[in-house]
């Protein structure tokens, strides 16, 4: 075990992981966080806690992670490169670990120009690959980025993102390889709508032996409406929403659109479960946390496996 988080145990035991996501509130509404966490509890293996998502200020990711932990949901603490330099990052990692956080996801972050403070200074002191590497060095070598010794290194299970759909397509899998080389233990992908393109990407990754080295969790977002599908297709960079999805949503009665969206997501999850190289699904039900129990049920993801709190075993040699 590298970190011993619940997610790591699930993956190492060979279970198909199912993870969720919680967006922190635009204020101090703790009850809002708790409510969202309760919908996820027992229905997912852990939940990503976003970090000033879409460059809009929200309650800090580490603080929200702690609240979510109190509700019995394991957090995956997201950290973006946009808002902090290497000093702040390392300090937050130490603090997060000290307070019990065991998973972290290293991201670049959406550019501040698209958020609610467009004139903020974008930090980008280091990039997401360097962040992954910095956390690994802290964990495995007990060293800060500067080379100084850490007393009591933070043992984090390290995640990184991958987008199989951004240009240039042929470069995507090499970028994945770089993140693995830098030290990623697990990968969460961008929302998948174009399954054909995803199959191609995961096959390339598999052929290169990458799926043996890292756990890949495929990103799924259920469409709530035709408007949302159109918006993601046209406005969100790096998103690939094929016309068929929109056609399917348009093909049902107006009242049934959201249900059709869930149906599509469930079908995707079923297929991904059978896809070689996919270790789990990451469900991003944006502001739709109350639907998570239903989606988990319909996708056949329940009950979630229970893993024992045992010591590292021979299993651990895989993917170390």
């Amino acid at each position: 075990m590298k970190a011993g988080s619940h997610l790591e145990k699930i993956l190492r035991a060979g279970h198909f992981a199912f993870t969720g996501e919680i967006g922190p509130p635009r204020g101090t509404n703790v009850e809002d966080v708790r409510k969202k966490a309760r919908f996820l509890k027992g229905n997912v293996d852990m939940a990503n806690i976003t970090d000033n998502q879409t460059a809009v200020v929200r309650m800090s990711s580490w603080a929200t992670s702690l609240i979510v932990m109190q509700e019995g949901v394991e957090p995956n603490y997201q950290m973006v490169c946009r808002d902090r330099n290497r000093l702040a990052m390392q300090a937050d990692i130490l603090g997060a670990y000290a307070l019990g956080i065991r998973n972290i996801l290293a991201l670049s972050g959406d550019h501040q120009q698209f958020g609610d403070h467009p004139f903020a200074k974008g930090v980008y002191d280091i990039d997401s690959i360097q962040l992954v590497n910095m956390i690994k060095t802290m964990r495995d070598e007990g060293k800060f980025q500067s080379g100084g010794d850490i007393s009591g290194p933070p043992k984090m299970f390290i995640g990184a993102a991958a987008n199989p759909f951004a240009d240039p397509l042929e470069w995507r899998v090499h970028r994945l390889a770089k993140k693995i080389e830098a030290g990623a233990d697990f990968i969460q992908t961008q929302c998948i709508f174009n399954m054909a393109r995803f199959r191609e990407w995961i096959k390339q990754a598999d052929d290169m032996g990458l799926t043996e080295k890292v756990y890949i969790l495929a990103g799924i977002t259920p469409m709530k409406s035709i408007g949302m599908a159109r918006y993601m297709q046209k406005k969100v960079p790096g998103m690939d929403v094929p016309e068929e999805i929109i056609k399917r949503l348009k093909g049902v009665d107006k009242k049934q659109v959201a249900d059709e969206g869930i149906k599509i997501a469930c079908e995707q999850i079923q297929e991904l479960k059978e896809t070689k190289g996919v270790a789990g699904v990451h469900l991003m039900a944006i502001e739709w946390e109350h639907k998570v129990p239903e989606i988990a049920e319909r996708a056949g993801m329940l009950p979630r496996p229970v893993v024992e709190d045992d010591e590292p075993s021979a299993q651990d040699d895989k993917k170390e």
């Binding site: 290497r86 002191d125 280091i126 690959i129 360097q130 590497n133 910095m134 980025q145 240039p168 470069w171 090499h174 390889a177 770089k178 080389e181 830098a182």
Partner: peptide, 20 residues
């Protein structure tokens, strides 16, 4: 990517570069 590919120098970006 396009320029390096054209110059046959993709290896330059496959390497991990240390923090600036």
């Amino acid at each position: 990517y396009i320029r390096l590919k054209q110059q046959n120098r993709l290896d330059d970006i496959k390497k991990i570069h240390l923090a600036m």
